[in-house]
């Protein structure tokens, strides 16, 4: 078994060492965002919990990377610092499920479907950074786990008691462009 590098809730990880497997285990309403750079053979994986940090406090949130509006730019910046480039990054999204029917909403909350809001927030951040989403397995009502294989950039996910499904083939684009 190759060494697994888990992205825990509200954290991100970057893998450059060949044979490393980045993973998010048990994604429900959370989003696992994989960023792949095929040139430098680097991959990043963020485990995003919520759409955006509360604006009112004014102070830096204590765990900023649990929010899409911090985690996505922070992961991009960290990958660039390690030698990647924004224009080479490709994204894959997994998660954002609604496992339980939403309950009567409390005042001040637009929607209880955190999964859908998480996906929208992550896509918005990727749009701002002009990073294309190559594949996604999002929404629905089932939890998922995902794994990102370094260096090939293969992204695989599975649902509870399900079989692994490949979302992004190893070096898919590179092969297609060479052909």
């Amino acid at each position: 078994m190759p060494p697994e590098l888990p992205a825990r809730m509200g954290e991100w990880v970057i893998g450059t060492e060949p044979g490393t497997v980045l993973c998010c285990i048990g994604l429900g309403s959370c989003i696992g965002l994989a960023l792949i750079d095929r040139r430098t053979r680097m991959a990043g994986l963020a485990h995003v919990m919520l759409p955006e940090a509360p604006a009112s406090t004014g102070t830096r949130p204590s765990q900023p990377d649990k929010f899409a509006d911090h985690a996505v730019p922070n992961l991009i910046a960290a990958m660039i610092e390690r030698g990647s480039a924004r224009h080479r990054l490709e994204a894959v999204l997994v998660g954002g499920a609604q496992m339980f029917r939403s309950e009567p909403s409390r005042p001040g909350l637009s929607s209880r479907d955190i999964g859908a809001r998480n996906e929208a927030a992550v896509r918005e951040q990727l749009g701002k950074a002009r990073i294309p989403v190559r594949a996604a397995a999002t929404g629905g009502g089932k939890g998922r786990s995902m794994r990102v294989h370094v260096p090939a950039g293969e992204v695989v996910y599975k649902e509870a008691a399900g079989l692994p499904i490949t979302l992004l083939e190893a070096d898919a684009d590179t092969l297609r462009m060479a052909a």
């Binding site: 429900g28 309403s29 959370c30 919520l50 939890g143």
Partner: peptide, 27 residues
């Protein structure tokens, strides 16, 4: 108590979803 809901799924996904739906501002 409101009507219960039952799922068969990954433990982490179930618990994380419940915790986040309770309180979005809590650390």
């Amino acid at each position: 108590p409101a009507p219960p809901q039952v799922v068969y799924d990954m433990l982490g996904a179930i618990l994380a979803s419940v915790l986040l739906a309770r309180d979005e501002t809590a650390d």
